[in-house]
């Protein structure tokens, strides 16, 4: 646990050194959020039909996605991937802790530190915008509590997926193309590009069973109050179930690979 905390502390310090890059990143996300919202505005004002989601909720959804972008597992841990590419990963095996858990701790730091730094200014600005672009606060305290809890669930899923991305580097070193593909799958199926409630009904059903929906869609819909508080337990269990499954899966592939590495002599 001590090692865990120190990993996170190092990550924070590092991040503060690159604060200008973080600000630039925040501005970029703000800009993209604006474009997405204007497109949605165009669509909503073209249709009179009943939509599965109000325009107001859709905007909040978009801002939530932009603010929490850093928390999504859209890339691996650069340092670990470099270790693997240069072959220095063998030294990692010498560390006196479970390699998967060590990588998990790093992933946790990678997903929380920049997000905390970037999301707060985005939230503040998004809440202060004119009404057509404005993010809305949760309707009540219970929605907010549910959002906090499911965001934690999202974080767990995100870390396990990040770890799987790291581990795939062990299998195909030149798999840069595959990883980018993976990241774009994560972005669209989590609801980052288009809110999941707007997807065609059948596709929506399939997506709701996949772990990606636990990343953006579930927390956000609790935040906007679309999902009632009394369903919190079910959704949170869904997230935990996926996190545990992906955790076991990651451990399993990594251990298999380590055995191979040891047999081949690294």
């Amino acid at each position: 646990m001590k090692a865990f905390i120190s990993i996170i502390r190092i990550r924070f310090n590092l991040l503060l050194q690159y604060r200008i890059a973080a600000i630039a990143g925040g501005v970029t996300q703000f800009f993209f959020g604006m474009i997405m919202i204007m497109v949605l505005y165009g669509f909503y004002s073209s249709s009179d039909g009943e939509m599965p989601m109000s325009y107001q909720s859709a905007i909040t959804y978009i801002w939530m996605g932009q603010a929490m972008l850093g928390m999504l597992p859209w890339n691996g841990d650069m340092e670990i991937q470099n270790l693997i590419r240069t072959g220095n990963v063998s030294y990692e095996l010498l560390r006196p802790m479970n390699l998967y858990n060590y990588w998990f701790a790093r992933a946790f730091a990678l997903r929380t530190a920049p997000t905390l730094l970037k999301s707060i200014p985005i939230f503040i600005i998004a809440l202060l915008l004119p009404s057509d672009y404005k993010m809305h606060l949760p309707p009540n305290v219970s929605s907010f509590i549910a959002w906090i809890l499911t965001t934690f669930g999202a974080l767990m899923i995100s870390c396990t997926i990040t770890n799987i991305i790291n581990i795939t580097t062990l299998y195909s070193i030149s798999g840069d193309g595959i990883q980018r593909l993976l990241s774009s799958i994560v972005t669209i199926f989590s609801g980052m590009v288009v809110p999941l409630p707007l997807f065609p009904e059948k596709l929506k059903q399939i997506l709701s069973y996949l772990p990606f929906s636990g990343l953006v869609d579930i927390p956000t819909r609790f935040f906007t109050g679309e999902i009632a508080f009394n369903q919190l337990l079910g959704y949170f269990c869904f997230q935990c179930l996926w996190a545990v499954l992906l955790y076991i899966l990651g451990q399993w592939i990594l251990n298999r690979k380590i055995k191979d590495l040891i047999v081949q002599g690294g």
């Binding site: 497109v39 949605l40 165009g42 669509f43 909503y44 004002s45 073209s46 249709s47 039909g49 939509m51 669209i188 590009v193 288009v194 707007l198 997807f199 065609p200 596709l203």
Partner: peptide, 14 residues
Amino acid sequence: LGVWVLFERFGNIQ
């Protein structure tokens, strides 16, 4: 795919 989803839902844009 993102563009397609929106048109599936809304039919048209302006």
